[in-house]
Write a protein that binds this DNA or RNA. Structure first.
Length: 330
DNA sequence: AAGATTTGACCAGA
DNA sequence: TCTGGTCAAATCTT
């Protein structure tokens, strides 16, 4: 399937998203300032429920912003798709295109760099004639379970003892590798005994149609567009340090409506590795909204040529500044 | 019986 | 030559 997007279309779309993000951030800042004011003044008549409400609003604002940024990464270069054949280009409505991308599980960012969807040549079929993974998207995630639920079905195909590693490394491929030609793989390395901690390293994007992601994205956007009372009280954890588990069904691990176990979650933050831009996959776990466990998405920003921004880190810094540190107003 | 896991072998790249 | 990633037959699980 070939898709072409016109620059004007992209720019107007990006402007719109930027405006929404700005608005959301300003709202979050205002709520945070209100909360800070209450904490600083420490009025006796302030009840904790009010603080909770303000905190929830702040976190909701950040969550919404992150969700937008992760879904529609704003990149200095416009999105292009080179056509692999000589057929004449055709323009599409940008919304339609984004929906198509979501449906195909193609993250918009992925289209920017290689200028086509799939760069990796198909591996040879014969045993042992594979090529080592080079110049392939890689990102890491630390989990507490070896078989972390990440929205895709994996099948173990190997296990190796790795030098300088205490524990063996387990290799997994997508269950749909043969039936759908999905090349996504991962390996999981145990890095700690107690508490158990594993580092999952993902290679490549899922090209399988495991489930329909569109519904999930639509649901999330609906939450953003029409926030309900429940969505306005989302309890978000930016790290592991929050003492209480999420109580909102939007984030509760028991909630399967928004992130059914078989549905690919949202992309993680952008990660640089192996001298190459590594981009979020639609298959990876969203760092904020995913609460199936207390994940650590490991940011690896090793390249100075990085044009992308680790939005989660920015949000963390911004939020801690607003809440605890000196704040430059305006 | 079908699908998943285990495990030793194979091979490419450093 | 060593190491890591993958293959595929054997074995296990459902």
């Amino acid at each position: 399937m070939k898709m072409i997007m016109e620059d004007d279309d992209i720019v107007s779309r990006e402007d719109g998203i930027k405006a929404i993000i700005e608005e959301e951030l300003v709202r979050g800042r205002d709520f945070a300032n209100q909360l800070r004011q209450r904490i600083v003044t420490n009025k006796e008549d302030d009840d904790s429920a009010d603080h909770q409400r303000l905190l929830s609003n702040v976190l909701t604002s950040f969550a919404n912003t992150l969700s937008l940024l992760n879904k529609y990464p704003i990149h200095p270069n416009p999105i292009h798709l080179h056509q692999s054949s000589a057929s004449s280009p055709s323009s599409h409505n940008s919304d339609l295109l984004i929906m198509q991308m979501l449906h195909l599980q193609i993250h918009p960012c992925l289209l920017t760099y290689d200028n086509h969807i799939c760069k990796t040549p198909p591996p040879a079929d014969t045993r042992g004639s594979y090529r080592r993974k080079r110049n392939i998207e890689t990102w890491k995630k630390e989990t507490e379970n070896e078989r972390e639920e990440d929205g895709h079905q994996w099948r173990k195909y190997g296990q190796k003892a790795i030098q300088n590693e205490k524990y063996t490394r387990n290799y997994f491929r997508c269950t749909h590798k043969y039936e759908q030609g999905c090349k996504a793989t991962k390996y999981v390395q145990r890095i700690q005994e107690k508490p158990p901690l594993y580092r999952a390293t993902y290679h490549g994007r899922h090209t399988c149609t495991n489930t329909d992601t569109t519904n999930n994205h639509v649901l999330i956007m609906e939450e953003l567009d029409h926030p309900t009372s429940s969505s306005s009280s989302i309890f978000l954890s930016f790290d592991n340090s929050f003492p209480n588990p999420p109580t909102n069904p939007f984030l509760s691990p028991s909630s399967s409506s928004l992130f059914p176990s078989t549905a690919p979650p949202l992309p993680p933050m952008m990660i640089m590795e192996e001298d190459r831009q590594v981009l979020p996959s639609t298959t990876s776990t969203h760092p904020v909204l995913d609460v199936s466990s207390r994940h650590h998405v490991v940011p690896i920003l090793s390249s100075s040529e990085d044009n992308n921004i680790c939005w989660d880190d920015m949000m963390m810094a911004a939020m801690s500044q607003v809440l605890y540190g000196s704040v430059d107003e305006g």
